[in-house]
Design a protein around this nucleic acid. Structure first.
Lengths: 142, 142
DNA sequence: CAGGATCCGGAATGATACTG
DNA sequence: CAGTATCATTCCGGATCCTG
């Protein structure tokens, strides 16, 4: 796959004559606003991690809290509400004793698949890269 | 493309006999930690937006600040330092009058291409979806 | 178990003014 | 132009306690 450059990500659009269209201050920022929109909803420290945990089959509150390392109960609670509002998950309460609350991803959250895959791959690559850099730095210091 | 589910994103690994491997508390979270690593570096409100602005050819400080709507000079300054530390960009100073400082993406930032594309697509899709939802809500209210 | 309510400290951010 | 310094503010998030 060509990872060569951002060429196809740039915002210059070509008109019919092949010339570049000038871009004013607020034009041509399709990518910028689209990514901004995405970040607004799924950005932040926890959202995606919670979704991943849910996709791994963890549905209960405390399960999720154990799974998403470092998150507090209150924050998890807030994030879950947010995710529900945005249609990523559904909260169901089973009246029993003790009460059972389950969070389940909706079909809509499946649309995030490509984002998750891309992030996972990049994260893996980046970590390996960091390790290599640190090794080289250690070499140079010796 | 199959957007069907997260199936291939789940963490159960099959062993040679085809059985599921149990996952302890800290095992099997490859996806979770990888995405966590990614978010740690490129997460936050601004990082990716700055990178996009840079990829669109805006290289000067004030250009970038105008481009990335809502960011303050101090925050932009800090983010740029961070991005430089992480190898996403290089800062060059041309001694002239006035001084010209340019920020340019490195080759390493090209590795983010797939992430950016996925996010842009999802953001576009999501926004359209929101509009549709709001329309329907307006309908129902009438 | 699944959270809500409250208190509180520190970190992030905005605004403004200033520098080379 | 390209930032830095300082102050005020806000707000995020942890800790703790409480409820159904």
């Amino acid at each position: 796959m060509d990872q060569a450059s951002f060429e196809d990500f740039k915002c210059e659009t070509e008109d019919q004559t092949g010339g570049k269209i000038k871009m004013g201050s607020s034009e041509c920022s399709a990518a910028l606003t689209a990514v901004g929109d995405a970040l607004y909803v799924i950005g932040g420290k926890w959202k995606l991690r919670i979704i991943i945990a849910l996709s791994e089959g963890f549905t209960r509150f405390n399960e999720l809290q154990r799974r998403v390392e470092g998150i507090s109960a209150r924050v998890l609670s807030n994030e879950l509400k947010d995710l529900e509002l945005n249609g990523f998950l559904v909260r169901t309460v089973q009246v029993a004793s003790p009460v059972i609350v389950e969070y389940k991803l909706t079909d809509y959250s499946d649309t995030l698949k490509n984002v998750l895959i891309a992030l996972r791959e990049w994260g893996t690559m980046h970590k390996a890269n960091i390790k290599k850099r640190m090794k080289e730095a250690a070499q140079a210091a010796s």
